[in-house]
Every structure is written in structure tokens, then in C-alpha cells.
Amino acid sequence: MAARRTSQLSAESGLVRSVLRALELLELLGSAREPVGIVQLARTLSLPPSTAHRLCRSLVRAGFIAQDPATGRYTVGPNLLRVAAGWGPDLLLGPQAEDVVRRLRDGVRETSYLALARHDSALVVAVAEADDWLRVGPTPRELLPLHATAAGKLLLAFSPPGWVSAWLGRAVLQRYTDRTVVNAEQLRRQLEEIRVRGFATADEELSRGVRELAVPAWLWDGRTVAALAVAGPAHRLRFQEAGPTLDAMLRAAAELSAVFKGGSPGGDGRGS
């Protein structure tokens, strides 16, 4: 399909075939759930492997795709994610999602935000900061590490198991504080616990003095999960006293799901 469309477009005068091929390659990687090898790229795009390799080298050099040094496979790169972050998810979600996040912030009186999975990161698509001199939350369109934030761990926990296993096998779990989980098996156990209880926590794992909670909101087809998160100072956001905050978050997540015609696979979001 991709190769046929490129061929059709290339027949038009004034179009650059190599640019069209590069865009088709980016589209293919953008829709893939895991890194793709050069043979599969060449076959799918109906290109000679040497041509596909030259395209990949150029796009890696420009930062629009990235190559896993261990497997040699390719995925989208940081520059492409920055471009996508400037346009995509927040336009799809729109002001309705921002309103829900703001109301949650007003209810719990802590910074609240919404994030979607974007390959190996959690992309922040809406933020409502607490009315506080101490700023503890992320910024709009910020890319957060999956393993060191409540939103990221929540998104991992509710992603397809095969993709999560592949991600754990290739990810470099960077240490941000002395509480960051950098052991893949320990993180895997945490993800299992999150799936059972239905919410995620991060205890000063990305920044010292900051704690987070996150719950799932099921969007669109009922299979796309977003992470609705609250971040606050550790002295104020105490997990053992977070029942009312979690209740408010679950109500907000249900509202998001209703607005965007999603639906949780079951339960009230906390698990059994």
C-alpha cells in the first residue's frame, strides 16, 4: 500500500521521490508497536535493502528515527516526537480534556495532568498547575520517562504484554533519584501490581520531594489508555491518606472516558 501510494505520487510532476519514500518510512515506523528491522522496512516499502538503509542512515542522522544498537532495528526518534508533540494529541483531545484536568486540579488542589503513550515515553497533553509557589508537575508536551513516573508506569501496565516485554528487554532504565526503579524485574512486578489495583504511584522517583498518583482513562475505542495523574510535594501527597484524591481522580477518568466514548474493560478502575 505504502509503495503503491509513493509510486502514484511520484508520477506527479515536481515531486521528489526520495522525500516521499522517507515520509512513507516515517509513517510505517510511527504506526509500529515495536522497532522494525531493515529487511521488513524494505519489503513493506518495496525498496531495495540498500535504498532503505540509506534512508534510515539519513533519518537517524537527522534525529527523526533511532536505531537500537543491540538489535539494529529502528523506531521513531526524538526530533519526530517533538514535531508530533506540537500538533497531535492535544488537538485530538481538545478543550474538553483540559477542562476535566482543571476541575480535577481544583478538586484535589494539586497539579494534575493527562498523558498518552508515545513509543518509549509518556507525552503530556494537558496540565493544570496547582496554585502554589512550589512547582512540581510537568510542562505541556513534555516527554516523561515511562519507568520513573506514575503516568508512565500506568501506561506501561495497561499496554499489550508483548510490547511491554519487548520494551523491558531494550530499555535503558535511567536512574533519576535513589528511589528510581532501574531493575527490569522489579519494574515488571510493579506493573503487575498496578494492573491488579488499578492505579500507579511514583514516590520521589523522577524528582526528590515529588510524589505522583495516576489512574487510567479509556478513550475512543475503549482500548486506548491515557494516564490521568496528580503530582504534589511529598510532605503533602501522602499515599496512605490518598483515598479522597483517588476517588476524585477516578471520577475525572470516568468523565474523560464518557466524553471520548471510551470504556474501561471492567471494574471501577482500582482492580480487585
Rank of each mutant, 00 (worst) to 15 (best):
Leu23Thr: 07
Arg195Thr: 09
Pro78Met: 00
Ala253Ile: 13
Gly263Ala: 04
Leu144Trp: 02
Ala85Thr: 00
Gly262Phe: 14
Ala226Thr: 06
Ala254Met: 05
Val164Asn: 03
Ala226Asp: 00
Leu187Trp: 05
Gly37Leu: 12
Ala151Thr: 05
Trp220Gly: 14
Leu146Ile: 04
Gln174Tyr: 09
Thr139Cys: 14
Leu25Val: 01
Arg270Gly: 00
Arg270Tyr: 07
Leu45Lys: 12
Pro95Gln: 07
Leu187Ile: 01
Pro89Gln: 15
Gln40His: 08
Ser159Pro: 05
Ser13Ile: 10
Asp268Gln: 15
Leu9Gln: 12
His147Ala: 04
Ser207Cys: 13
Glu185Ala: 08
Ala231Asn: 13
His119Arg: 03
His235Phe: 10
Ser10Asn: 02
Gly37Asn: 13
Gln186His: 01
Leu93Arg: 03
Leu191Cys: 10
Ser18Leu: 11
Val136Leu: 11
Trp163Phe: 15
Ala2Arg: 05
Ala258Thr: 02
Leu25Arg: 14
Val230Asn: 15
Glu212Trp: 08
Arg54Ile: 11
Trp167His: 09
Pro244Ala: 03
Val182Pro: 09
Thr201Asp: 03
Ser272Ala: 11
Asp221Ala: 05
Ala97Arg: 06
Leu246Thr: 03
Val136Trp: 09
Gly222Gln: 15
Ala252Lys: 06
Pro138Phe: 08
Glu193Cys: 02
Thr71Ile: 04
Arg188Asn: 11
Pro161Trp: 11
Arg170Gly: 12
Arg43Glu: 08
Ala52Gln: 03
Pro244Arg: 03
Arg179Glu: 00
Arg223Tyr: 11
Ser272Gln: 14
Val259Leu: 03
Phe158Asp: 01
Leu187Gly: 04
Thr6His: 13
Val100Asn: 06
Gly263Ser: 04
Gly162Thr: 06
His53Glu: 03
Trp167Asn: 06
Leu55Gly: 03
Thr75Gln: 05
Leu134Arg: 14
Ala226Pro: 10
Arg109Glu: 15
Pro160Arg: 01
Trp220Lys: 00
Gly72Ile: 06
Ala166Asn: 10
Ala11Lys: 06
Leu29Val: 15
Val210Gln: 06
Phe260Ile: 03
Arg17Ala: 12
Val230His: 09
Leu228Cys: 10
Asp99Leu: 11
Gly107Tyr: 07
Arg251Cys: 15
Glu185Arg: 14
Val225Cys: 14
Ser165Trp: 10
Tyr113Ile: 08
Ala126Asp: 06
